[in-house]
Amino acid sequence: MGYSIAIELTLKEMKTLRTLRNLALAGGCVILFMPATAQDNPKLSDEEVASVAVTANQIDINQARLAKERSKNTQVLQFAETMANDHKAVIGQASALVKKLGVTPKDNAVSRQLLADAAKTEKVLKTKKGKEFDKAYIDNEVAYHKAVISAVKGLLIPETENQELKDLLQNILPALDAHLQHAQMLQKQYAAK
């Protein structure tokens, strides 16, 4: 099943945003943002970067909560528990840093788009049960972590002015990468069955 949805955002401070690329995944309609090139990226203040970072982590916590409600698979449940705990820890550290820096996370087009896409993903996940849910959840986790890693590297880090906030984003990458590899490991197990 393939989906191709064009999303347009119009904000005064944004350049043309042809950067929202759609990810079509087999078995689910998961839509994520993926900046194509640095020059197409929206301009974000540090307040907006902080909001996007917190939102992206919160979305994965919410989806982990859904998995804990719907899955009965031990490995999926353990993965979801790890996602919830790790992303909570990251939000905790990000919150402590923005408090220290006196930065107040500011809602923006990217964080709103992330939330809108997450709502669509959750709607699809809620239609699935059992193994079908597990597969869709793990497929989404693979796609989501790929998209977030790409966004942190290609959008959030380059847009961040404050060095401590930049360092925090850089430090998040190994955890995101480990989550992606973990999700891919589970995805391969499903493919082998």
Binding site: N85, D86, A89, V90, Q93, N171, I172, A175
Partner: peptide
């Protein structure tokens, strides 16, 4: 004796 110290962002 081996001591593991968690200096990461997560548990």
């Amino acid at each position: 004796t081996i001591v593991w110290v968690n200096r990461d962002m997560v548990a």
